[in-house]
Design a protein around this nucleic acid. Sequence first.
DNA 1: GTCTATACGGTGATAGAC
DNA 2: GTCTATCACCGTATAGAC
Lengths: 210, 210
Amino acid sequence: MDKLYGANNQDNTQENIILDAARKVFMRKGFDGARMQEIANEAGINKALLHYYFRSKEQLFQNIFRQSFRNLWPTIEPELVREKIDVRLLIKAVISGYVDILEKMPYLPNFVIGEINRDPEKVAGLIKEAAIKPDLLITAIKKAMDDGLIIKMDPREMLIYLIGLCVFPVVTRPLLGQLLYKNSDDYQKFIANRKETLYNFFSRAVGIKN
Amino acid sequence: MDKLYGANNQDNTQENIILDAARKVFMRKGFDGARMQEIANEAGINKALLHYYFRSKEQLFQNIFRQSFRNLWPTIEPELVREKIDVRLLIKAVISGYVDILEKMPYLPNFVIGEINRDPEKVAGLIKEAAIKPDLLITAIKKAMDDGLIIKMDPREMLIYLIGLCVFPVVTRPLLGQLLYKNSDDYQKFIANRKETLYNFFSRAVGIKN
DNA sequence: GTCTATACGGTGATAGAC
DNA sequence: GTCTATCACCGTATAGAC
C-alpha cells in the first residue's frame, strides 16, 4: 500500500505523479531533509523536470504544505452544526474524521507540526490563506455548554483536548511502539478500537450522559 | 530569558557553552536545518572548535538528543509508586511535571518528535540506551483499576492520553495562537491554569470521585 | 586550545540538445 | 516535454599555524 501519504488519486498526469512523490518525501524528511534528487527518483524522473513543472523546491513544498494543512483541521459537515445539533454526534464526527485521515496519512501531523515549528512566520501566511474558520465548531460546543449538555469550560480548550487525544497517539507512534507496545499486535488493537474508546473517554471528561 | 531551551546551568566550561548553543539551535531547526556555523555563532566561537570538542555534527547532536529525550518521559518520585499510592497524587505529579518542564523547554517535544519521525532507526537505539522503564507507572495505574478507583481500560492507553493532554497544547502552540487565540492573553491564561483544568478534565475521564 | 584557510562532497538550479 | 551536463554555492570537516 502506497497511500500512506495521501495520493492524489486523480489523473496520472505528470504534475500529480510529482506531487505524490514530493508529498511522500517531504512528509518523512521535512523541508530541510528532503532532497530534490530523492523526489525525482520517487517520481521516476530526473531533477530537471521537477524544476520545469515547479520552479523551485520552495514552490513545490508550498503546494504540498497548503494541501496537507487543510486536511488537518476537522471539516465537519455543515448539517452537523445547524440549529439543533447533538453534541454527541459532533464529537463522534470529529473523532471519526481524524481517525480516518490519520489512518491514511499518519505522517501528516508530524509534518505540519514540524514545519510550523521550523518557520512559523512563513507558515502564518499559509494558514491565513487556508481560510480555516474554527468558529462553527467553537460556537456549537459553547451552545452545548449553555444547554447544560456538557461541562462548562473554555470551548477552545475542550476542542484542543479533543484533537490532541486523536492526534497524539499517531504523532508518537514510533515511540510508543518501542516503549509501551513491544508486542505490535496490541498497538494495532489500540488504534483499531480508538473511535469507541476515545469517545467513551472524552464523553466522560466533558460530562455527557449517555 | 534564555533558558527556554534548558541551559546546562553548571560550570561555564567550553563544552557546556557549546552544548547550550547546540541545544538551542537543534531544538528550533532540527538536525537537518541546524548549521554548525549558527551553533558556533551562538556559542561565540568558530566552527573548527565545535569539531575539536565534538568530532562531528552527528555526535554533537546525539549528546543533545539523549539528554532531551530523557526529559520527556515522566520521572515520578519513587515514593509515589509504592504500595499504597493515591492515584490522584500520581496523576497530579505527572501533570505537574510536564507543565513545569514544558514551561522551561517548550521546543522539547517538537524536537524529539521530529527527529523520531525523521530517522526512527537511529533513535530506536538511543531510546534503549536511555533505559526508560514505563513499568512503574503502568503497574501503578493498573493497580488503581483493580482497586476500583478508576475506570478499567488499557493502562497504556490511559497513560498516552494523559501525556498527550499535557504535551499537545504546547506542540501546537504556534497554530493555536494563529487559529484560536488571536488575543494572546487568553492563551497565557489557558497555559497558566492548565494544571488544575487538566486534572479536572482527566479525572472525570477516568472516573475519579473527588 | 583557538584561530584561519582550505579541501571535498553534495545540492538546488539552469543551459541547451533532442 | 524530457533528458544530460554543468554551474555556483554552501556545509561539514580537516590541516596547520600560533
